[in-house]
């Protein structure tokens, strides 16, 4: 059941990619509507998939690399629906769909077996930590998608660039606020479970690096009025670091945070 839903999810995203590639090549009638519908259907499939997995496992699927990556993919799509309001951009829809497909591919490289929670993960902090991580990293993902659009604007002449820039800024503020909560919930939880709120574990350290990069974005914007290209590059690079924190660290730099 879950696998069939995953296939449907994947197919809908593939259709989104195809539709938007065509739209980029030449505008089609009701193109934006078709793209919206495909994304909304993908989100519905994702939610059904979560419900199925929750009922099969007897717990909310928040606990391992597979489950987190799936949540991340779905979170990106849900946030995308909010961000793309009044923003007709095939390039945005295309980049969101491609990113989600990339995340699903990463998820499929992890074991999808439903395991019971180990003692360290049996805490209410798990849910706060993971849910805020999905919002934080989802915001940074969409900021990066908009950053790519900003930098590749030659494709779409009818886009208001200051408007895109403003949306990137708001996404970074949202992401930064939630990343702060992710780090704080992680620290409070670590104090509760490992007896130390900060141990310079690779995952911790890289989440701090990410936080510092986006803090630099906000300060350069507030104090030096950095906008446009420079800050668009910052959110793209910032997201590369986010992806490294999430997946690179787990593979290359194992530590205490070995669940994801």
């Amino acid at each position: 059941m879950e696998n069939i839903l995953l296939d449907i999810f994947f197919a809908l995203l593939l259709f989104t990619v195809i539709v938007n590639l065509i739209r980029l090549w030449k505008p089609i009638k009701h193109g934006d509507f078709i793209s919206s519908m495909l994304i909304i259907m993908a989100v519905i499939t994702f939610i059904v998939m979560l419900v199925v997995r929750t009922s099969m496992g007897g717990r909310i699927p928040f606990a391992n690399a597979y489950e987190f990556t799936l949540l991340f993919a779905g979170g990106v799509l849900i946030l995308a629906i909010l961000v793309r309001r009044d923003l007709v951009s095939p390039l945005f829809d295309l980049s969101v769909a491609l990113l989600t497909i990339l995340l699903l591919s990463v998820a499929s490289s992890f074991s999808s077996e439903i395991r019971p929670l180990m003692p360290a993960l049996q805490s209410g902090w798990l849910y706060a930590h993971v849910a805020t991580a999905v919002i934080a990293y989802g915001s940074f993902a969409l900021a990066a998608c908009l950053g790519i659009i900003y930098l590749g604007r030659a494709q779409e002449t009818d886009l208001s660039l200051p408007e895109v820039d403003e949306r990137i800024y708001k996404l970074v503020v949202l992401g930064f606020t939630f990343l702060t909560i992710v780090i704080i919930t992680g620290a409070v939880w670590a104090e509760e479970v490992w007896g130390s709120w900060w141990t310079w574990d690779p995952k911790e350290t890289w989440s701090l690096v990410t936080w510092l990069v986006y803090a630099a974005y906000l300060h350069t914007r507030h104090s030096y009025d950095w906008k446009g290209n420079k800050s668009a590059w910052m959110v793209v690079i910032g997201f590369v670091i986010v992806m490294f924190t999430l997946f690179g660290v787990s593979v290359l730099l194992p530590g205490l945070h070995s669940y994801v």
Binding site: W200, T205, W206, V209, V213, A216, H219, S223
Partner: peptide
């Protein structure tokens, strides 16, 4: 100067990241 603050922020970031590649 805000410039110093931002440089310090990024230097702390780079140095912390470096530490994750060297076994401690």
């Amino acid at each position: 100067s805000m410039q110093t603050a931002i440089y310090l922020l990024l230097i702390v970031g780079v140095v912390s990241a470096l530490g994750t590649f060297i076994p401690q």
